[in-house]
Amino acid sequence: MWSIIEQIFPYAIIFTIPLLITALGGLFSERSGIVNIALEGLMVIGAFSGALSIHYLSGVLDNNTLVLWLGLLAAVLAGVLFSILHAFASINLNANQIISGTAINLIATALTVFLARNITGSGNIRITSGFSPSNVPFLSDIPVIGDLFFTKTYPTTWFVLAILFVSSFVLYKTRFGLRLRSCGEYPQAAEAAGINVRRVRYSGVLISGAFAGLGGALIIVTYAGEFTGTVSGLGFLALASLIFGQWKPLGVLAATFFFGFASTIANVSQVIPELAVIPPILLKIFPYVVTLIALVIFSKSSQAPKAVGETFDSGKR
């Protein structure tokens, strides 16, 4: 049993990372008071622009690692640009945030495939090579922990974990973090205290765009290697992990890792004899059923930001 876990673990981490960074983006948006159901679409945009820029840059530049990082940067920028649509609709125009998010999801999936088909013909964009996994020197030799956490890791994994650490610090230890959280809890009070609620919410949504774009591109440069016009519901899963993790960075880490681990088990179950006895359908639906149950359990003590999803009306008491 242990050897199975040891084998699965690195893959579970690889699968977790895009989910983690996207959910973390969602956290910034929702903590500022804007529901961001557009995470899925923003991931697609990130995956598309990441794959596209890597596809083109790899013909120009020789340094593949540099190309990949530039691709990630392009994805971040594209995510930010696209999330402006959501911010503008839900902050300036008081649109229903869920409808605006849905519209962005639809625009993202349709537009990227439309453009990709126009560029490559098939609608898929292949990249020549992604990051290659490597063992962390010295640390991977530590018994147990070394096998679980420090073998076959991608540099991006450490990058994302660093972002998680910094985000957590920013949210709880800086002025900006306090303001962001106050705008999600009681924006009228925040405004009375002199905070520009709209501007803070803009930054929340734009950060979520940056992170979700990065998450989408991470799928391309680690395990997928190809843009196919979809991120198969990972954005929605990130949204669920955000709730599952109760809008807290460490909770989100735990929730996304749960999803990563459960999905990896479901994906590899057929090749591992001990798991092959379980009907695959049960393994596949397991994470979703658990989420539903978790939502029920947490419903009594939900830590949801109080003003999330409401349009900001500064005259409201």
């Binding site: 609709a89 125009l93 519209a103 639809l106 349709a110 537009l111 088909r117 609608g123």
Partner: peptide, 22 residues
């Protein structure tokens, strides 16, 4: 040469405008 995803794109943009009807 226009890809068929044009329809989805138009529909998605229509919803965005309908959502921002304000």
């Amino acid at each position: 040469d226009i890809p068929p995803e044009l329809a989805n794109t138009i529909i998605a943009i229509i919803i965005y405008f309908a959502a921002t009807s304000v």
